[in-house]
Design a protein around this nucleic acid. Structure first.
Lengths: 336, 336
DNA sequence: CTGTTAGCGCTTTCAT
DNA sequence: ATGAAAGCGCTAACAG
């Protein structure tokens, strides 16, 4: 500490070590050459003073921050949480720091954009965006300034690199599974695009595939997870569907809860399927029939794609599409 | 952009708007007064140039970053994810930015300390730490330099402020519930302190309380969630316990999965209880008997406690203990 | 309300 | 291998 109580700077360390501040800088940045003697004098002085490097000042003058910005829509959900952690790990492996911005269910579009801009203001060298809400055009604008990779959701804009799971393949495959087990009339929960781009497209794929297979579809549009009891009640009254396909595991659980409240057994009376296959809802104790997304792979690849743009000049934007796998559980049963 | 391709600065904006760079600074920082005319000239020039404020430079000269650092052990788990999001929301409400560092199951102690130090180097004004792993003494050292609040786990050090749930109360209450339902012999999964401070103390509280009530306890120490099948098998062979108390909901699910693999029904044959009560495992569709921690309250209060230390000088370190509530589900049944 | 002048703490040439 | 000096982009007094 200096007399004034503010934290010590390299100047203080230099004075105490009896060297110039340049030497202190070299010791901490690892650039240039420093004699063993000087190095140890600096380190001792720093330790005695309790010196901590000021990362902002450092990156200000070097104009490099060595930092990646990650934005996830809602880190409290297993899906985004997993993505966030995988990305952090990968970034750490390759020597980058990460600053994270996360919203929550309560964040609206403007809030998300503001959070994204904060990240840019913090001089992150690249941006990893995970949100089913942000529109493509909003991203294109920011991608022009900062290298940006979208992860976990389909992205069509040419200039934006992305890594995501094939929602159509997943939705169709899961629909195949349900149809294979003999269901001839199925309720499909279909969120709107404004709620989630990924969920709406996978749900549409489910419905489309079922129709192709000659299965009758009872679509329920724009349901919010809190209001799932109503549609479920109606389903039971009309009494047609033998299965409900939900656009996520969380929604599937909500449906199961609503069914149980009405005394309906799963899967004996009605089958239910989910989507995501992420811990902890993938537990065999629950046995949810679902579609597992390879989130770890998505996270890793997204980081790697971003680094490729950073290090190796500017490779053209690319779109990596990954496939998931069927998680056949106990909640979708064969119809007799 | 300037000729050299680097992003524009306030100087470029000032030149284009025909004012001094101070005016640009004032417009963006909101300090000092600016005429409507100047403001609009600046804003137009900035927009034309695609100017983005450099937050690092700004906080360098103001020596205020307006940023809080949050460290969570593993954001991919609902527990820490929820805490992280609540804190972010609260910080945003009160006008602070947040930079997050998260590890994962693979982070060891050194990794966590390094991540924590990164946050300090980034000049966060305060630190919110959520980890059952970091030792008290490691935190005390850092708390001397940066205001620090520990959230979500008991903290005894006098100099560190903390907000957490009463693990002993929770563990005992849950044990009461199990005993009330007639269980006279119970298996308790007890992780070691090195695995998690919170889980080990709540599990010990469960066991202690059961013993007080004259219930026979079969303790299983230091189990890792991956190896839960062994203890479960042994329990079934000895055939004594009518219930298993797990130290977390996730562990409870693992136990249920292991039981199911052996063809044992829950709760008809064996009862199982968890701990945490956090979404999505709190779904009525699962019906897990658990102890719900008021995580949102913990997160909010932790932020507020930190702000109190920041704004209002240096109030003495305080420890806020919150109580949870019993989540009576269907996985613990009455014994006849 | 506006411009001028110093820095914030660190990294870099460029000398030595 | 080391030091001196010139900024990085912005804010903060201080004068007008």
């Amino acid at each position: 500490m200096r007399g004034d109580g503010r934290p010590p700077t390299i100047i203080d360390v230099a004075a105490r070590a009896g060297v110039s501040k340049s030497m202190v800088s070299r010791v901490y940045s690892g650039r240039g050459s420093v004699s063993a003697d000087t190095r140890s004098k600096v380190l001792t002085a720093a330790a005695e003073l309790g010196y901590v490097r000021n990362a902002m000042a450092a990156s200000m003058s070097s104009t490099r921050t060595n930092t990646l910005g990650v934005f996830v829509r809602d880190a409290s959900t297993p899906f985004y949480g997993r993505l966030l952690v995988t990305m952090s790990e990968r970034a750490a492996e390759v020597g980058y720091r990460v600053v994270v911005a996360t919203g929550s269910g309560t964040f609206d579009l403007d809030d998300e954009l503001r959070a994204l801009d904060h990240l840019v203001e913090m001089q992150v060298e690249g941006l990893l965006v995970c949100s089913g809400l942000l529109s493509s055009s909003d991203l294109v604008i920011r991608a022009a300034r900062t290298p940006l990779v979208v992860a976990g959701r389909p992205e069509t804009a040419e200039t934006v690199t992305s890594v995501y799971c094939d929602e159509v393949h997943g939705g169709r495959s899961l629909a195949d599974h349900v149809a294979d087990l003999g269901h001839r009339r199925v309720t499909v929960l279909q969120p709107g695009e404004h709620q989630s781009l990924t969920m709406s497209s996978r749900a549409r794929a489910m419905a489309d595939r079922l129709l192709e297979l000659g299965v009758t579809v009872d679509p329920v549009r724009d349901v919010r997870i809190e209001d799932v009891q109503g549609p479920v009640d109606r389903l039971l009254e009309s009494g047609g569907s033998t299965a409900v396909m939900a656009p996520s595991d969380r929604d599937a659980l909500a449906v199961m809860a609503a069914l149980r409240r009405r005394g309906v057994r799963v899967p004996e009376d009605v089958s239910v399927s989910g989507y995501d296959g992420v811990a902890p809802l993938d537990s065999p104790a629950i046995g949810l029939t679902s579609w597992a997304q390879p989130l770890r792979e998505v996270g890793r690849r997204a980081v790697d794609a971003l680094l490729a743009r950073l290090d190796g000049g500017a490779p053209a934007a690319q779109h990596q599409v990954l496939l998931g796998t069927l998680q056949a559980g106990r909640t979708v049963a064969r119809v007799h």
